[in-house]
């Protein structure tokens, strides 16, 4: 089929056939591949990579779950099955550097794969986008939609406390000249969205409130009309929270890549 645009999504299989080595492997993750909402984030990020002329490749159909939820739910066998299979594929393509928009994939590949023979330089898309801006490869245009707009950022546990990435996402929001407002609990003291540790895949235990509602209320208290997130699970939990509060018409949950894409009208 003829492409309607010029966006390219080269797979590692194609690239290696041509004998090409991309600068970076883009790890999509299961949410970015299948979840209708998060596919939009994947697409936004890929558009940015295209216009910034980043040479990248994806595993495409060869990618599988990193095993993060299995390990956190206590299934070490299944985790290692996934990890060892993925490492075989990654090492087979001689991958050196990986970028991903999923903090769970980021944490697993960066911190847990080395013990199983997979050592790569892993960067989260918030860091990667900042680097592109810093290197002058991605220009941020002034955008009326975002300029001085109140945006609050929700720290993902697997980026923040787990890996100390607090500044990159905030720097991105500030580069849009938006008005970054913090929630009461932020950075090291941020409150989880409720989905980590494989909670995404089960009902919460008995309590008197849902964690995502607690966090959503805190986000709404900032009066920001955009809640920026950097994690597929956080996005789901906060979007559900906003719907629960019936505020989905005025308050949007957007990923950092979507904000950048929006500012560039991509």
């Amino acid at each position: 089929m003829e492409n309607k645009n010029t966006y390219n999504v080269p797979t590692m299989a194609e690239l290696s056939q041509k004998g090409e080595d991309p600068e970076v492997l883009l790890w999509i993750g299961c949410a970015g591949s299948y979840d209708e909402r998060y596919k939009k984030v994947t697409k936004a990020f890929v558009k940015i990579l295209n216009i910034a002329n980043v040479s990248f490749g994806v595993l495409g159909p060869e990618e599988t779950c990193t095993g993060d939820p299995a390990r956190r739910a206590g299934n070490e066998f299944l985790f290692q099955m996934q990890a060892l299979a993925n490492i075989q594929v990654l090492n087979g393509y001689n991958i050196k550097k990986i970028v991903t928009a999923c903090p769970h994939c980021y944490n697993t590949i960066k911190n847990e794969y080395p013990d199983l023979g997979g050592s790569y330089e892993v960067v989260h898309h918030s860091e990667f986008l900042n680097q592109l801006i810093e290197d002058g490869r991605l220009a941020i245009n002034e955008n009326e939609l975002l300029k001085d707009q109140k945006i609050t950022y929700h720290d993902s546990c697997y980026l923040g406390r787990s890996n100390h990435i607090y500044n990159a996402p905030r720097q991105l929001i500030e580069s849009l000249q938006a008005d970054l407002v913090e929630m009461k609990r932020n950075k090291e003291n941020s409150l989880c969205c409720g989905a980590g540790g494989a909670q995404m895949f089960k009902e919460p235990e008995k309590g008197d409130k849902f964690i995502n509602i607690e966090r959503t209320e805190e986000a709404l208290q900032t009066d920001a009309k955009i809640i920026a997130s950097a994690c597929p699970f956080c996005m789901t939990m906060l979007s559900d929270g906003i719907k629960n509060k019936e505020r989905e018409d005025e308050v949007k949950v957007l990923d950092l890549a979507e904000l950048i894409a929006k500012s560039k009208n991509l």
């Binding site: 089929m1 591949s33 299948y34 159909p61």
Partner: peptide
């Protein structure tokens, strides 16, 4: 994948994007 989607759909997003 932790969700029950056919593995053959994993790369559909790229076609959608194009």
């Amino acid at each position: 994948s932790p969700w029950k989607f056919p593995p053959s759909d994993r790369f559909n997003w790229a076609e959608e994007l194009k």
